[in-house]
Design a protein around this nucleic acid. Structure first.
Lengths: 145, 145
DNA sequence: TTAATCTCTATTGACTCGATAGAGATTATG
DNA sequence: CATAATCTCTATCGAGTCAATAGAGATTAA
């Protein structure tokens, strides 16, 4: 399961992608629209910025913007920041690989084979879906004309 | 990521599937072979029994056995016991569905669509791989003749 | 100079995780 | 029937994580 933080992040980024502007959007407004507690959102956005998904402007009339176009920010990118690796074990993680005390031999470990297939299947989906596709489908679904 | 408990469970069940006998196998022996702390393993096996994956015999010469043939026990079955639902959100979980405060409308929620696709992809893999396939591949890999 | 904004770190309470402990129930066996 | 071997159950522990809140600091536009 995703953490609350992860779900909040997805909502907030979709709000930003919809806003999709040149001007930055203030934390308070994002919090409002995304339905996220403001102070908690501050921490989340800060982390997303440090990981290169957002950028920010400080001071008066500051705020947050997407660091990249929406079609270059995948669900996998976001979830990795808030909830860590997609993989079910370190020995099959691409972004956080480290050798696994469990398996004596990675080449033949039966568990690893399965977890690797699971990771690939998950990553296939989460890396191909972006903020652009999410906003697109939402626009289509809620547009009135 | 799987919990330590989850990884222990997979190892223990593979040991049991290899043992694959009529006679029960004692906790102490499973712990030994699977490399799991004995008292911790007790709790894990107990839970797997309550969820119908194992059965047990009590008293002297007691022990644990698989409750079903190895080809009917999937990785998904095991992971659901030790680590909960495969899904990334309650609103896309088959085994632990409950409505999601996040999405206003499940039909159109953009996040839900992606998480549902991810769940399906993961389940596809984890439900098709069983203890039999794991033991099979291991046998093949380590057999000397 | 000031007010508005992001930045950073600390703190809180509840919960989970991994592990250990020990008393209880059950059963085969001599 | 007594005993030893085994599973069963519940409690406890310390460390860590999670969700949330708080507040002082840095930066900038006006």
């Amino acid at each position: 399961m995703l953490s609350q933080k992860g779900r909040y992040a997805l909502h907030a980024l979709i709000v930003l992608a919809e806003h999709d502007g040149e001007e930055p959007m203030m934390i308070a407004d994002i919090a409002e629209e995304a339905g996220v507690p403001r102070k908690f959102l501050e921490q989340i956005l800060l982390e997303l910025r440090k990981r290169g998904i957002l950028r920010s402007l400080r001071g008066r009339s500051g705020g947050y913007l997407l660091a990249k176009p929406p079609n270059e920010i995948s669900f996998a990118d976001i979830i990795r920041v808030t909830d860590g690796p997609l993989a079910l074990a370190p020995c099959v993680s691409v972004t956080a690989y480290h050798r696994c005390e469990d398996c004596e031999d990675e080449k033949t470990c039966a568990i690893r084979k399965v977890l690797l297939a699971a990771r690939d299947a998950t990553a296939e989906i989460l890396e191909s879906r972006t903020l652009a596709s999410a906003v697109g489908s939402r626009r289509r679904a809620t547009r009135k004309r």
